[in-house]
Design a protein around this nucleic acid. Structure first.
Length: 123
RNA sequence: UGAUUCCGGCAGUCGCCAUGUCGCGGCCUUGGCAACGACACGGAGGAAAGUCCGGGCUCCAUAGGGCAGGAGGGUCGCUAACGGCGACCGGCGGCAACGCCAGGGAAAGUGGCACAGAAAACAAACCGCCUGACUUGCGUGUCUGGUUGCAGGGAUCGCCUGGAAGUUCCCGCGGCUGGCGCAGACCGAAAGGUUUCAGGCAAGGGUGAAAUGGUGCGGUAAGAGCGCACCGCGUGACUGGAGACAGCCACGGCAGGCUAAACCCCCUCCGGAGCAAGGCCAAAUAGGGGCUGAGCUGCGGCCCGCAGCGUUGAAGCCCGGGUAGGCUGCUUGAGGUGCGUGGCAACACGUUACCCAGAGGAAUGACUGCCUGCCCCGGACAGACCGCAAGGCCUGUUCAGGGUAAACAGAACCCGGCUUACGGAUUCACAAU
RNA sequence: GGUGGCGUAGCCAAGCGGUGAGGCAACGGAUUGCAAAUCCGUCACACGUGGGUUCGAAUCCCACCGCCACCU
C-alpha cells in the first residue's frame, strides 16, 4: 500500500496542475456523470491517485466556483483509497441543479461515481 | 435626516498556503542547499466586485511648438492626481434637519423646431377691434357639433366625520366658434359663385411644448412701454466679500423664443501601452554564426571488411536568438495607531506604538460542543390605548421549546476615488410631531 | 488579470431627434382532388433595464444588466 493512500493529506503531487496532465486524462479517458458532477479518469501507474478540477465561469461567481472546488478536494482527501492509482478530473454538471447541490448531495453523487470507476477499471 | 464602527466568539479533531527556528541518512567545494519532518507565528472585503476616472511602477516613443482627437466646466480651497473631497454661492425639492443639480457662452457664426397654426424667427396679421369709403356687406334657424364660463341643479370620487373648499360626469342657461340651411343683396345666359374695400391696431380669441416681458392705472377712434407705479430683465456706478455673488442707487422702455448631453466659441487638462508590463535562466526539436579540419553512422564482443553520408564541410567545441517550463517583478506603503499644532472643513505638519495575505488550475475549509446574536411559537408579569363588559391590541421584562450562523460577495502589481450589490448589529448628532 | 464589441417581434435584420421599413416564421382565406409553390389579408408587450437632456428619444448623455471576441 502506497503511503499516500493511508493518510488524509492532499499534497501538491496529488494534484493535477499543468495543462499537459489534463490533456493526458482527456485523451485516454473513461468517464461517467450524473445530475451533479462529471468524472473523467485514467490509470497513472504511480500507486496513488491525483485530483484535477475544472470549473467554468458559467457555473457561477467566484464564491460558488471556489466552494465547489473546496468541497470536492475535501471529499477526495477523505476517500483517497477509493480512487486507487488513478488520475481523476472532476467537473460540475451543466445542469442548473448542480450549482444548488448541498454538500451531502455532492458527496453522495461523487462517491457513487468513484465506486463505479473502481469497478470498471478492475473489470 | 445625516454620519461612525463591526461583521459572530471560544475550544477540539482532520486538512491548505506563507514565514521563522531546529532536525536530516539526499547533494556538493564541510559549510551550506533543496525536499521532507517537528514546533512557533500569520493568513480576504467594505465593497476584495464593475473596470468608470485618477496616479505610482515598467517598457516604447519623444528638440520645441502647433493641428487633429478626447475629457472636464459656479467660486475658492485640498490632493501625487482626479470626472474625487471640503467650504461657500446660485437654482430646485422638503414644515424642518437635510437632499438633489454636466451649474461657462444663444446681444460671434451655422443648423434644427414634426403636427397644428396667419405666422416658428427677416417678422407678420386668420378671426377680431377702430376710423373712413362705397356698389350697405350687418339678419336668422338648426346640430345628442366643439370650446369656455356660472356663488345654477343633480350624481360621483377622495380627505375625513365636518361641512366648506375641491375631483370627474350629466342637465340647465349664457358667450365664442365650426358645419349645414333659410332670407336678403350683388355677379353670371345658365350651372353656379361672391357676400365688402382702404387704412390704423396687436389689447382679446384661436393653434402649439414654445407666439417679441407680467399686473394695475392712465391714455386713445381703437390700441400699444405710448406714459406712470410695482415686479422681472439689461447696462453702469457705489458698498460688502479672496471670489462665485449679494445689497443698494441711477439709467434704459426691453435690446428681441427654445435648443450647445446639435455643430461650435471660450478656459483648463491629456504621448502610447499595460504586471499576459518588464527583467533573468532556459530543456527537447529545427534553423543561424565562428574555430579546428576528416571523419561519422549501420552490421559486430573486438579488429579487418562491406554499405551509406561527407571537403557543395563529417565530427567536436564555442557563441547567439528563442519555444515549453522556471525564477523574478511581489509587497514597507501617497501604509498606519495614539498624541500635539494649524485650519470652519477636506487636509497638512511634527512626534510615536505597529508590520498587517502574498496564492499561482490559484490557499481561509469540513465536522463537533458550548456561549452569544437574530427569527418563530407558547406561558407568566408590568404598562399604554380601545370597549359598558366579555375581551381586543401594542410595547417591555422573563422562562421553556424549535430553527439559523446569515445578505452581497473571494485578494491576483500597488494605491486614491466613483459606481453598483447587500442582511443585521452598534454608537453619535440633528429635525419634526 | 487586462482590452475591444454587440443587444430592435419566435428568427434574420434596416433605421442615427418628429407615425419603427422589409424578409422568414405563425394564423386566416383564395387556388388544388389533397398538398407544395403562388396570390390576398391578419397578427404581436419589438427598441436589454433605470435615470437624465429635449416640446419630443430606438437615436444624444450617464449608470446598470446580459452576451460575444481577443491578449497564453
Amino acid at each position: 500500500m502506497h503511503p499516500y493512500l493511508v493518510d488524509q493529506r492532499l499534497r501538491k503531487e496529488e494534484r493535477l496542475l499543468v495543462g499537459a496532465q489534463f490533456e493526458a486524462v482527456f485523451e485516454t479517458r473513461q468517464s461517467a456523470g450524473n445530475r451533479v458532477v462529471v468524472l473523467h479518469w485514467r490509470d497513472n501507474g504511480l500507486g496513488y491517485p491525483r485530483l484535477g478540477l475544472v470549473v467554468s465561469r458559467k457555473f457561477g461567481n467566484a464564491v460558488a466556483r471556489n466552494r465547489f472546488k473546496r468541497r470536492v478536494r475535501e471529499l477526495f482527501r477523505r476517500n483517497k483509497p477509493l480512487c486507487g492509482s488513478r488520475d481523476v478530473v472532476v467537473l460540475p454538471s451543466k445542469r442548473p441543479e448542480a450549482a444548488k447541490a448541498s454538500l451531502g448531495e455532492l458527496a453522495e453523487s461523487l462517491l457513487k461515481l468513484l465506486a463505479k470507476a473502481a469497478e470498471t477499471t478492475n473489470a
